[in-house]
Simulated assay, not measured.
Amino acid sequence: MNRCAIFDCDGTLVDSGNTIHRALGLAFADHGLTLPPREQAQKVIGLSLVEAMEQLAPELESERHHRIADTYKDAFVTLRGQREVEEPLYEGILDLLDALEKRGWTLAVATGKSDRGLRHCLTSHGIHARFVSLQTADRHPSKPHPSMAVTAMAECGASPERSVVIGDTGWDMGMARAAGCGAIGALWGYHDSAELTAAGAQVLATRPAEVLAFAERMVAA
């Protein structure tokens, strides 16, 4: 049975917060709404789009949440076409992927991004092919539902006992625990230590270089 490391994308692999907040602002403005401050808005990163809009604008009806989500997608595509999308890899991520693969870990991604958005992001950094399984909001319920993690493990030939989730939000930690995986909180992302711990993080990594040791302790070779 393989060992599987399931990564969140936004806030874990890449720092996309600036672009996400900009696209959210454009979408909200298009609908005559004011986006909450970034500190509040970034807390929904990691959720699927409709669920994110529900949290950012709970006073609106469901149909409007779907319309704003569609506008957000269009705004993001426009920014990408204008070469204004910024999604840099966090420092140390490439080294972490190298170290995990060297130790025989199978890599996967579980993200609130769309299939298209994830493909663009990973391809731009030359790491798309490194992941055996890519699970997105296009085909699954929003985190913390375990569906993405369960499917990733199945595609990687791994069991929950031999899998870990690495993510920066409480949604990631909730997904990990619901799927029976190890839960490693990434403190370089968008949720703080209290939020990660409350959602079920078993350990907290302050930087990517710490993740391998945590994962190896959770899942023996």
Score class of each variant (00 low, 15 high):
A27W: 04
A27K: 01
F28P: 00
A29I: 03
G32F: 11
G32S: 10
L33F: 05
P36L: 10
P36F: 10
P37T: 03
E39L: 07
Q40P: 01
Q40W: 03
A41R: 03
A41W: 01
K43Q: 14
K43T: 07
I45E: 00
I45M: 08
I45F: 05
G46Q: 04
L47N: 00
S48C: 13
L49R: 15
E51H: 12
E51A: 14
M53S: 07
E54M: 14
Q55R: 15
Q55K: 15
Q55H: 14
L56W: 02
A57T: 10
P58M: 12
P58D: 13
P58Q: 13
E59Q: 14
L60W: 06
S62L: 14
H65Q: 09
H66I: 08
I68M: 11
A69Y: 02
A69G: 14
A69C: 11
Y72N: 05
K73C: 04
K73D: 09
V77W: 10
G81D: 12
G81H: 10
Q82K: 09
R83F: 05
E84M: 06
V85K: 07
V85H: 05
E86A: 10
E86C: 04
E86W: 08
P88K: 15
L89A: 05
G92Q: 06
I93Q: 01
L94E: 12
L94S: 05
D95S: 04
L97M: 07
D98I: 00
L100V: 02
E101G: 02
E101Y: 02
K102V: 01
W105P: 02
W105S: 00
T106F: 04
A108Y: 08
A110Y: 03
A110R: 03
T111P: 07
T111I: 10
G112E: 14
R116D: 12
G117P: 03
R119H: 13
H120P: 00
H120S: 08
C121R: 01
C121I: 09
T123K: 14
S124M: 09
H125Q: 08
I127Y: 07
H128M: 08
V132F: 04
V132Q: 13
S133D: 06
S133H: 02
Q135G: 01
Q135L: 01
Q135N: 10
Q135I: 01
T136C: 08
D138N: 15
D138L: 06
R139I: 05
P141D: 12
S142T: 15
K143M: 06
P146Y: 01
M148L: 13
M148F: 08
A149L: 11
A149Y: 01
V150A: 11
V150K: 03
V150L: 15
T151V: 13
T151K: 12
A152T: 07
